[in-house]
Design a protein around this nucleic acid. Structure first.
Length: 582
RNA sequence: UGCCUGGUGGUGUAAGGGUAGCACAACUGGUUCUGGUCCAGUUAGUCCGGGUUCGAAUCCUGGCCAGGCAACCA
């Protein structure tokens, strides 16, 4: 340490000390910036963030990243708060239904906006006044070019734009026109209010961007009060300013908008939050753009926004994901400016980790194969004690009924077992989970050559799973008693797309070509009777299979419907695959 | 071709002039009444070239590559 001081001289010393104090080391760049700002007393040391969705679709896992960031920061910094604000400035697309779904999803994720629920539409009057102020200062004007002309005048990425002939209208004329726009005297597209900045700017967003346009459309909250609506760039920075936001966090695509964000607030001389951009989430084997998700829903490719295959919050909820798992995923993903591709495997790891600790274990047979235990008495049944969760003894035990005829998993028997297969096969002995050792004596095939029934014998001495003579079995399999089993509809979900990046397609081709035709498979399963009264949303593990969740489609009088959240890791499947390949 | 941003194992991230670390994935092995969990271990990385420095992932410089930006959408 003293060596380094000798070599370093004085430059940067105090900076380095602040790093070494550990206050920012290890933080993501946004939390680091905020920490510095707080320490420097910027904004009076205050921290205020916001989550600003547009209510024009359902929230997805990418939004969860933003929610966890914004609300997470509010929890971490002293006295910090996060607002929920609906960015509802395009009445044609926004609905109260989307507002409701977004509120539900944010609170389901575990965040609370308390009394800070806001809408950009709350500020329409103020925004109108701000536009007037800009006009009075000669910094905005009413343009009467057609949309096509405006586009033409804007220039391109490499060529500068040209000034509209209306650019130098007098303040009085601008004000008068703007008033008449508000009064509804004009058709949509007849006029638009533009900020007067610089038609030669290399950043296209600074070439006199539109800030108010005419829309004769009812708004989901303001009804027909307005027929002019502010544009995103105008509304967003001013909403942030009005709410006293300190750090306005958004995704990378808004980076080029920041000069405009800053320009508007500077011109108006109002509270000026700092916009900081981070990379949006990309997940393998799915799509996360609102446009594509909407296409899947409207094209009937999935069964609504909450289809368990959808990467929406509602979809994951229905699939059986927990808020804690999603929050943990967002934490592990981190926050950077680098465009990343996060693997779905990480999300799956997070849900397995959570459910392994908390989900009760049950037995369910997905592809039932009948087994008759020949030496078990005909008219007897008994109850075997089963552990609810080996990870958590406090979850106790339950009784599982056992009788002469049971079901086991179809692939837990092989006529001709491959190497390393240690389940049932002719002459092989296995343990029934929490039950007896059984040995396969014979099997029955139907006319198609399908094995339809096993004839086994059991060893009465092995009740509970241990043999008094100390002999071991290689395999333990799950089962349900045929006489007691419940019929269940089990929906086995797999990834929606077959390729890691579904949007990576040849020119002229569509991402939907990469859809996985087997993303949903429904099976008629036999499950243990304890699931009789399971409520929708109930999560469990079917031993040796995976984690499942009772679907809202479950009807109290009908069959229970279960969604597979995620399968258990399957080492045997890997071995088998390797055997087949090599 | 203009502007902005960014490049650390297969993937996601940390290291803020001083031993390139963690997690996921993959692969070994051990434990196990779930081929789960758990435990131990292995493989594998600083985009490239110059420069500054005793020392560079880090600072400078020149390339290369990638992403974003031309709604009266957000």
């Amino acid at each position: 340490m003293s060596d380094s001081e000798n070599r370093e001289g004085f430059s940067g010393r105090s900076e380095q000390n602040s790093y070494e104090s550990g206050e920012v080391s290890g933080l993501d760049f946004i939390r680091e910036t905020i920490t510095r700002d707080v320490n420097a007393g910027k904004y009076g040391g205050r921290v205020r963030t916001r989550f600003p969705p547009e209510p024009n679709g359902y929230l997805h896992i990418g939004h969860a990243k933003s929610i966890c960031l914004n609300f997470g920061i509010a929890e971490e910094f002293p006295n910090a708060q996060c607002n929920l604000r609906f960015d509802d400035t395009d009445p044609a697309k926004e609905t109260p239904e989307y507002v409701a779904s977004i509120k539900e999803d944010v609170s389901w994720l575990g965040f609370d906006w308390e009394d800070r629920l806001y809408y950009a539409s709350d500020y329409f009057e103020q925004m109108y006044e701000f536009a007037v102020k800009l006009m009075k200062r000669g910094k905005a004007y009413v343009d009467s070019l057609t949309p096509e002309q405006i586009q033409e005048y804007r220039g391109t990425l490499t060529e500068p734009g040209r000034a509209s002939p209306y650019r130098d209208r007098s303040v009085e004329e601008n004000l008068k026109l703007f008033e008449r726009m508000r009064a509804g005297e004009f058709e949509e597209g007849a006029h638009v209010v533009r900020a007067k900045i610089d038609m030669n700017a290399s950043n296209i967003h600074m070439r006199d961007p539109a800030i108010f346009r005419i829309r004769h459309v009812s708004h989901h909250r303001t009804g027909d009060k307005w027929c002019i609506y502010p544009m995103y760039d105008f509304a967003h920075c001013l909403s942030d300013s009005i709410e006293g936001i300190t750090h306005s966090l958004c995704t990378l695509e808004f980076e080029v908008h920041r000069p405009l964000y800053d320009w508007i607030l500077d011109q108006l001389e109002v509270h000026h939050p700092q916009q900081i951009e981070f990379a949006p989430l990309n997940l393998t084997y799915t799509v996360l753009s609102k446009r594509r998700l909407t296409e899947l829903v409207e094209g009937g490719i999935v069964d609504g926004w909450d289809d368990p295959r959808m990467p929406t919050i509602a979809g994951f909820r229905r699939r059986g994901y927990t808020p804690a798992a999603i929050r943990e995923f967002c934490r592990r993903v981190g926050v950077t400016k680098f465009t990343a591709q996060t693997e779905m495997a990480l999300l799956e790891h997070c849900i397995r980790e959570d459910l392994n600790k908390h989900a009760p274990r049950r037995m369910g047979v997905l592809y039932p194969l009948k087994v008759v235990i020949e030496n078990y008495p005909e008219d007897t049944e008994e109850e075997l004690e089963a552990v609810n969760n080996p990870e958590d003894p406090s979850m106790g035990t339950r009784k599982v009924p056992f009788s002469k005829v049971i079901y086991v998993e179809r692939n837990d028997f092989r006529e001709d077992p491959p190497r390393k297969y240690h389940r049932l096969a002719p002459g092989r002995e296995v343990r029934l989970r929490y039950g007896y050792f059984i040995t396969c004596q014979d099997y029955v095939k139907d006319e198609n050559g399908e094995v339809v029934e096993l004839r086994c014998t059991y060893d009465p001495e092995t009740r509970g799973g241990q043999a008094p003579d100390g002999r071991k079995v290689k395999g333990t399999i799950h089962w349900v008693s045929a006489a007691h089993a419940l019929d269940a509809e089990v929906r086995l979900y797999d990834r929606l797309f077959m390729t890691p990046d579904p949007t990576d397609v040849e020119e002229g081709e569509d991402f939907k070509q990469n859809l996985n035709p087997e993303s949903l498979q429904c099976v008629g399963a036999k499950v243990e009777p304890s699931l009789q009264d399971a409520e929708p949303g109930y999560r469990l593990q079917f031993e040796r299979q995976g984690y499942f969740c009772v679907d809202p489609d479950t009807n109290p009088e009908g069959k229970v419907v279960l969604n597979r959240t995620v399968s258990l890791k399957d080492t045997w499947a890997k071995i088998e695959k390797k055997q087949r390949q090599g």
